[in-house]
Design a protein around this nucleic acid. Structure first.
Lengths: 119, 119
DNA sequence: AAATATACTATACATTAGTATACTGGTTAC
DNA sequence: GTAACCAGTATACTAATGTATAGTATATTT
């Protein structure tokens, strides 16, 4: 049986696909993850640089979200034992490859805004 | 000046892009939106069909999320004044076009799972 | 007459996410 | 010596999200 005719008989999106999408969603959803990833897309940054670059974020949230992103393998944290200590954050390969997810989201978002005129 | 060299000087993702991504995120994030969209990707469905197809969802959540998706122009609700009343839900054009967003998310999610071995 | 189905809504509660404000300990500039 | 910078942490709170359970009105089945 062909894939196309198998798909026609499907009643919903396969569960392993939903899982994969949720993995991706968990990485980018929340109020601050996107601004942080967006700040790091163009190069490494220090904690205070990120804080200054992201309006209204509190150090608590920045710290929490960076830990989250680090735990999920999106961000790499490097501590230089200079005096004073310097901490740099940068995207991992996985983190950088998020652009392949973000670009279609930008396109869809812009198009959807046009479709739903006046929004 | 070329686009590439302009991008090199950027310190973060442009704001209108972040907005567009957030529009997209709002449409697909939440615990139940994806299962609902996934159920509708392969054709129209009635309320109880969706309820039966999505394990553990409560009618309250299903109703709420369907209203949300309808308000956002993702789902179309049709009431047939038969007896008993039949209500059908289906994806709009915008809703169907979400596959262009979901596919890269599936790919990224699967790849990321491979990268972060043992997760 | 009782049970079941459809398409929901209502109320109350629990959990998660995010905010506000202050503080730490070390270092450097004035 | 005190004010400011760095990289955060601590505590308490509010808001948003989701759950649990029950109930509505209508109609069909047994």
């Amino acid at each position: 049986m062909e894939i196309s005719s198998e798909l026609e008989n499907l009643k919903s999106c396969p569960a392993q696909f939903v899982l994969a999408i949720n993995d991706t969603l968990n990485v980018i959803s929340g109020k601050w993850k996107l601004p942080i990833i967006g700040s790091l897309l163009y190069g490494k940054k220090r904690f205070r640089e990120l804080e200054r670059g992201i309006p209204k974020i509190s150090p608590r949230m920045l710290s929490k979200e960076l830990k989250d992103l680090e735990a999920n393998g999106i961000v790499k944290r490097t501590v230089y034992d200079s005096i004073p200590v310097i901490v740099e954050y940068e995207l991992t390969i996985s983190g950088e490859s998020l652009h392949q997810v973000l670009e279609p989201m930008i396109e869809w978002g812009l198009q959807h805004r046009k479709n739903v005129i006046g929004k």
